[in-house]
Design a protein around this nucleic acid. Sequence first.
DNA 1: TGTACATCAGTGAACGCGCGTTCACTGATGTAC
DNA 2: TGTACATCAGTGAACGCGCGTTCACTGATGTAC
Lengths: 209, 209
Amino acid sequence: MSHTLGIRQAQKQKTRQALLDAALGLLEEQSLSSLGLREVTRAVGVAPTAFYRHFRSTADLGVALVEEALGSLHPMIRTTVSADGDPDERIARAVELIAGHVSAHPAHVRFIARERHGGVQPVREAIQQQLARFGEEVQHELAKDPMAEGWSDDDLLMLANLYVDQMLMTASLFLDALEEGAEEQRAQVVRIATRRMRLISIGRRHWLD
Amino acid sequence: MSHTLGIRQAQKQKTRQALLDAALGLLEEQSLSSLGLREVTRAVGVAPTAFYRHFRSTADLGVALVEEALGSLHPMIRTTVSADGDPDERIARAVELIAGHVSAHPAHVRFIARERHGGVQPVREAIQQQLARFGEEVQHELAKDPMAEGWSDDDLLMLANLYVDQMLMTASLFLDALEEGAEEQRAQVVRIATRRMRLISIGRRHWLD
DNA sequence: TGTACATCAGTGAACGCGCGTTCACTGATGTAC
DNA sequence: TGTACATCAGTGAACGCGCGTTCACTGATGTAC
């Protein structure tokens, strides 16, 4: 049989998750630095003081949201980069994957884009740290590719971070094209993102010329 | 003789500028969406109500800051892109120019990076609009280059926006390396930014292969 | 140049409101025997 | 299984505070004649 939490802990986790969800919703329209603790508890339907049972502050909640938004993304990033097929297929699949992720988790993506350079230091740092990890992971995947022969570690990391930044940029573009009936705009994002990736991929191929 | 403003208008402009300066200072540590009107007037030393003589709201002030931060940058961007010399020289000069600009106007750069995806819609839109203009201007400069022969307008614009995003990315990296004694970190940013630009430039050269 | 009136940038009091945080509490859940 | 006590997630009242906005005002600057 599987391990079950006590009733108390299960309820506590449920409330905690409700706070995170409510905060994420409120953050579609504002930055973390202006999010109020009372706003969040009001949205959940608990007393303001209940907040303190779960987080020290809204900044603390923000750090938890970073983990929720990016923590589970590492396997996805890895497989995206290491996928096989010809370059254009790989790019197309990566762009589709990003589009799908943005559709499935728009609020998480918006939160990361917003707070990456936002006004709350601990959250900014948590995001930078996760993105740096992504960079290193992509670097290691790239290193496995035969094309990486002759590349220095530094150059591989540079390329890896360029890919990571590009993915985020693309995700942010898809975000602006989420409304119903914006198919044309979405198709436009696919085209632009694809060509950007292709240009980078061409640069990569001729890097050692 | 030069045209002079009346005493009244001159004083008004001075106060307006003081409000903008104070706001920009306060925005180093927080987002626009949490900036209070009273904070700003307190920092300047005027009554809270004086604020309304100049701006409808802090969002309105934010839009004015966008104009101040990016409005005067168009000539600089143009000349950067259209500069001559061999590719590596051009890249080196562009990176230095960005570094210099970030050193001279760190708060403006931080403001743009922060609010580009921030929580205040009119400000976000003002920034997107300015960046779109930069993109078109760079596109037109690129079109003049002999290397642009055979390129579609679409592809040129794609490349132009890639450059613009890359400049902003680079500026943001320099921002994190501004403290005294971070020379090594700054040199690291120069190296990374240069190689990113170089890779894009290689991709550009082989785009039509 | 001088006078009489208009303009308007900045003032200061007042308002109602929501904020973050403290505190002692309650009552369901958990634990020891 | 039943009982007696401990834990602790969530409550609700209270606090002092700073917020955005309104309003009638003042007095220096501008303008018409």
